[in-house]
Nucleic acid binder design. Structure first.
Lengths: 112, 112
DNA sequence: CTTACACTTAACCACATGGTTAAATATAAT
DNA sequence: ATTATATTTAACCATGTGGTTAAGTGTAAG
């Protein structure tokens, strides 16, 4: 059994369960961006975006560099890879089991 | 841009951000199980497990069949596939951009 | 040095979450 | 019929979440 860091998974999945944060991530995947720039398409106050960015940063999904009064945020893909890996491994697992489960359910319904 | 169902993603990622529910999913990936059986390794009341199962069920990640007084829960992989796909697509996206970002950051640090 | 700009922090609010115990439901066993 | 078993529902509680507005911080521009 592969060892996963449960706390990282808690954080990452929680982070990406919010649609605003998913959109932020998707936009940062295109390239780095300032907060102002990131916030622009959202109908939401700047502090709200700022909080989302902090959540993303604490989870290790983004980082930033300061340039004057601007802060350029960018993605840190490594952490998200852990989440992707968890899903990929699980997926592999259940697709193996799926056939036997279906056999079981078929047998089940035949017995009724 | 591929169309993702945002609400499904909200639900699925929220569901799997809880370690208890992840463990339930992992155990159900092995095969179907009764609630009692599922609850056994957790230091948690049965109602708590019951609630988790309801959350999983509402998100479309599990289903169950009744057999007498038992309820056998099993995975419904399709929904989770949507989450996996979202991460896979995003991953593809950023790995493409990664090289150019690193170039940019290198250029950046060289300019200091 | 004062004002504008790009943010973050603080204080607050309504609502959701994850747990609890106690009671309810439904089937099985005696 | 009565009791035991499997599970859910109800009522409750503490804590966390995602938003708000107002105030604070640091850099840039006039």
């Amino acid at each position: 059994m592969v060892k996963y860091n449960d706390e990282i998974l808690n954080d990452v999945f929680h982070v990406i369960s919010d649609p605003t944060r998913r959109e932020i991530i998707r936009r940062l995947a295109i390239g780095e961006m300032t907060v102002m720039n990131l916030a622009e398409p959202f109908e939401m106050s700047l502090p709200a975006i700022s909080k989302h960015l902090k959540v993303l940063e604490n989870a290790g999904l983004v980082s930033m560099r300061r340039e004057g009064r601007y802060r350029y945020y960018h993605l840190l893909p490594e952490t998200m890879d852990i989440a992707h890996e968890w899903l990929t491994d699980l997926r592999k697992f259940w697709t193996d089991q799926l056939v036997s489960l279906e056999h079981f359910l078929d047998k089940q319904s035949n017995e009724d």
